[in-house]
Amino acid sequence: MRKELDPLLHSALRLKIVSVLVSLEEADFLFLQEQTGSTSGNLSVQLDKLASAGYIEVEKTFQGKKPRTLCRMTSKGIEAFRQYADALKAYLNV
C-alpha cells in the first residue's frame, strides 16, 4: 500500500519554503520571499501553518532598528520532508 503524501507539504508554496530552509541553517523573511516569489501576506500565512505543525521555528528579532523574522527547520520538519521525498520517489519509482 502506498504511503499518503503529507498534505501540509503537498502545496507549491509550502514545499518551496521547506525546500529553501532544508539546505540552510536559517533564512530571513525577505530571502524566503525572494526565493519563493510569493507575496508577504501569503508567505506569512504559510509560515504560520508550518510553524503550527512544528515543522519550522520562527524567531522575531531586530537588526539595528529594523524588525527581522528568522525561520529555520525543526528536526520534526526535516523528518517530515525526508518522508515526503521518499514517498514521492516511491510513487514515481525513482
Binding site: 503524501l5 503537498h10 502545496s11 507549491a12 508554496l13 514545499l15 518551496k16 525546500s19 529553501v20 532544508v22 539546505s23 540552510l24 526565493q35 519563493t36 515526503y84 521525498a85 514521492l88 520517489k89 510513487y91 514515481l92 525513482v94
Partner: peptide
C-alpha cells in the same frame, strides 16, 4: 492553494534547492 502532482513536487524540490 496550488496542489502539485508527484512529478511537479519532485521537480520543484530539486529546482528550489539548486536555486538556493
Amino acid at each position: 492553494e496550488h496542489h502539485l502532482t508527484e512529478k511537479e513536487s519532485l521537480d520543484l524540490i530539486a529546482r528550489t534547492i539548486e536555486q538556493t
